[in-house]
C-alpha cells in the first residue's frame, strides 16, 4: 500500500510546479472576491482533481499489471487511490489556508478588503473543503477505473454534477414534504459534511473495488 501511495506522490511531484503556478494565479484572481474560505475550497477542489492525472500516468506506463504482481491486493490498489485523494485534498486545503492567509494579509495592506462570502471559521471551512473535495474526487475514481483516464478526464465533470444533482433532488424532496431549508438547517448540514463525506467515500470505495475486481489486464 505504501509503495502505491509513494509511486503516485513521486509521479505527481513532476507536475507540482505547474500546479503551484495555477494555485498562486487563482490566489491573485479569486482572493479579493471570494476571501480565504473560497480560496481554500478552490485549492482543495483543484488538488483533488489531480487524482485523475495519477490514473493517466498509470495508464501511460502500464503500471497496473505490474502493481498487481507485487504483493498487494486489488483492494489495496483501490484504497491507495483514496488515500492519495485524501492527501491531495489535504495539501490543497493546507496550501489554501497558508497562501490564502498570506494573500489576505497582502490584500488588506493594499487596501483591498476581501468580500467574505461566509462567516464560517477558517478551521470549519478547511474541514468542509476537505469533505467536499474528497466527495468530488471520489466519484472520479470509479469512473476512471471503469472508463479509463482519457474518458475519465471528461467524466470528472460528472463528479461535480452528481453531488450537486443529488443535493438538488434532496432539496426538492424536502420542499415537497413541506420542510423548508432554513439557515440553521443548512449550517447543520455543512457541519455534518465531514461525516457525510466519510460515508460517501466508503460507498465509492466499495463501488470502485467491485469495478476493479472485474478488470483484466
Amino acid at each position: 500500500m505504501k509503495s502505491l501511495v509513494l509511486k503516485d506522490l513521486y509521479n505527481i511531484s513532476h507536475n507540482s510546479k505547474s500546479m503551484l503556478f495555477i494555485l498562486l494565479f487563482f490566489a491573485v484572481v479569486f482572493l479579493p472576491s471570494s476571501g480565504i474560505q473560497g480560496y481554500v475550497y478552490t485549492c482543495a477542489l483543484l488538488c483533488s482533481m489531480m487524482i485523475v492525472t495519477t490514473f493517466s500516468f498509470d495508464e501511460r506506463s502500464n503500471w497496473t499489471p505490474y502493481a498487481l504482481v507485487m504483493p498487494v491486493s486489488r483492494n489495496d490498489l483501490v484504497a491507495s487511490k483514496y488515500i492519495v485523494l485524501f492527501l491531495f485534498s489535504s495539501i490543497g486545503v493546507l496550501f489554501g489556508l497558508i497562501f490564502g492567509t498570506i494573500g489576505g494579509f497582502i490584500h488588506r495592506t493594499m487596501g483591498i478588503v476581501p468580500e467574505t462570502l461566509s462567516e464560517m471559521p477558517l478551521s470549519m471551512a478547511a474541514l468542509t473543503a476537505l469533505a467536499f473535495s474528497t466527495v468530488f474526487g471520489s466519484i472520479s475514481i470509479p469512473l476512471t477505473l471503469k472508463f479509463g483516464a482519457e474518458k475519465g478526464r471528461i467524466l470528472v465533470f460528472a463528479s461535480v454534477f452528481i453531488p450537486v444533482a443529488i443535493c438538488y433532488i434532496a432539496y426538492r424532496l424536502l420542499a415537497a414534504l413541506g420542510i423548508t431549508m432554513t439557515d440553521s438547517l443548512l449550517a447543520a448540514l455543512l457541519y455534518a459534511s465531514p461525516a457525510i463525506a466519510l460515508i460517501w467515500n466508503y460507498l465509492m470505495f466499495k463501488i470502485s473495488c467491485s469495478i476493479f475486481s472485474k478488470k483484466e489486464f
Binding site: K7, Y10, N11, H14, F57, D58, R60, S61, N62, W63, P65, Y66
Partner: peptide
C-alpha cells in the same frame, strides 16, 4: 516495456 512512469 517498462512499467514505471518516465519521470521516475
Amino acid at each position: 516495456g517498462i512499467n514505471f512512469y518516465e519521470t521516475l
